[in-house]
């Protein structure tokens, strides 16, 4: 899913603190937040930390659970960015860069006025949010495992080699393989800043690394993020970015706690360790799921 955050707040009200967390130069931090899986009515989530645009979008959701998941994901995003920048969650100015294909106001999400240059990407789907944070550009995507019908109906939009690869699989393996491929593609398109305005058949993000296989997108490393049964996820970063080996689990407590920075900076739990170090040759390589 592509997220939009175009609202702005006027001016920072408090001086930034020293950031509690840091992403090393050329590094990538991935965070995962599971839930909520049901809506239990009124919450004590700090919705005042969201900007006007986020609140408007949240209010528009037809299903209460969709609204709760949106609000949760965006509070998580702001609290993470606060830990990395030292700017309070409600004072972060989030907006959109111009689209890299049409110049419209729907390109990569950006933070303005942050004392720490930082890029981020948020995706959430059906109770799983993944947030990528990097000094370099980054794109992430997560989806619920697609159905066989969605898989079959979506194939014709893909690159011919991607279609052929998926077509060779036994039917019961296609939905998961398509989901992995689709999230790699969407993560990449978010990374380059076009989103789905770019022709979906233009880039090859298949898994074939054999002789004669098409090249993946030059200059980009695109990998699946395993470890989330029922979902598929992927991250795209410029190839010079060092791959993180792990996804950190964001504690639910950090959405409510006053000392969220500290909680975030001291997270020990790692969800997976299967993203290999980038070697520049494994573009698009899936690592399980």
């Amino acid at each position: 899913m592509t997220e939009a955050s175009t609202g702005t707040l006027i001016g920072a009200r408090t001086a930034p603190r020293p950031p509690a967390a840091a992403v090393e130069k050329g590094g990538l931090h991935l965070w995962a937040l599971h839930g909520p899986d049901r809506d239990d009515g009124p919450t004590t989530l700090p919705t005042a930390e969201l900007d006007e645009d986020e609140l408007t979008r949240a209010a528009a959701f037809v299903r209460p659970l969709d609204r709760l998941r949106y609000v949760t994901a965006h509070i998580a995003l702001r609290r993470l960015l606060a830990a990395y920048t030292g700017v309070a969650p409600g004072e972060l100015l989030l907006s959109r860069a111009p689209c890299s294909s049409c110049g419209g106001p729907h390109g990569r999400p950006v933070i303005t006025g942050s004392p720490v240059p930082l890029n981020f990407s948020l995706s959430h789907s059906h109770g799983l949010a993944i947030i990528g944070i990097s000094a370099a550009t980054v794109g992430v995507d997560v989806e619920r495992l697609p159905s066989p019908e969605t898989t079959q109906m979506s194939l014709p939009a893909l690159h011919p080699r991607e279609q052929a690869e998926l077509g060779r699989l036994p039917p019961h393996e296609r939905p998961a393989a398509f989901g992995r491929l689709w999230t790699r593609k969407e993560a990449y398109l978010k990374g380059i800043g076009t989103g789905l305005t770019r022709d979906l058949g233009a880039d090859y993000l298949g898994e074939d690394r054999g002789p004669g296989a098409p090249e993946g997108p030059p200059g980009w490393t695109v990998r699946n993020v395993p470890g989330h049964p029922g979902h598929v996820a992927a991250v795209a970063v410029p190839s010079h970015t060092e791959q993180c080996g792990t996804t950190r689990r964001l504690p639910l407590k950090s959405l409510y706690a006053e000392d969220a920075d500290e909680l975030i900076a001291t997270v020990k739990e790692r969800l997976c360790t299967s993203l290999p170090a980038a070697d520049g040759t494994a573009l698009g390589a899936a690592s399980g799921v």
Binding site: T2, R57, A60, V62, R63, S125, E143
Partner: peptide, 17 residues
Amino acid sequence: SLRAQGLNSLTALRLTR
């Protein structure tokens, strides 16, 4: 809004077909 009614990228892709 279609997004507010649950449209996401994968649903949109399937509907294009």
